[in-house]
């Protein structure tokens, strides 16, 4: 088993209204950042985990996304990085 740090990104599906993003967008515009056309807010989830290989870590993270970390009705997910960490033990 090796030690991995996995980052998962969960974001609102395109077309779905994201009220949080809208509020931030308005705030940025009112602060003078007129060039910002759209803001969408997602989540990054950081997993510290054991797995047999990088592929296994990715597969496990994807399974977690399907089962719990994202809701397919409203969100898309992506395993954005898998980093091998030298184990201390």
């Amino acid at each position: 088993m090796s030690h991995y740090r996995v980052e998962v990104r969960v974001k609102p599906r395109p077309g779905l209204l994201d009220p949080q993003g809208k509020a931030i967008h308005h705030s940025l515009n009112s602060l003078g950042w007129d060039g910002v056309h759209d803001v969408r807010v997602g989540k990054a989830i950081y997993l510290d985990m054991e797995a047999e290989s990088e592929e296994a870590a990715t597969e496990a993270a994807e399974a977690m996304c399907r089962k719990l970390l994202s809701n397919p009705v409203t969100e898309d997910y992506e395993v954005s990085s898998v980093e091998s960490v030298a184990s201390a033990s």
């Binding site: 779905l16 209204l17 994201d18 009220p19 949080q20 809208k22 509020a23 809701n71 009705v73």
Partner: peptide, 17 residues
């Protein structure tokens, strides 16, 4: 019930914020 798949769809943030 929606999260459990017993009903379709999802409840997201109110559009009124």
């Amino acid at each position: 019930l929606c999260e459990a798949g017993l009903l379709p769809g999802a409840l997201v943030r109110n559009d009124t914020l």
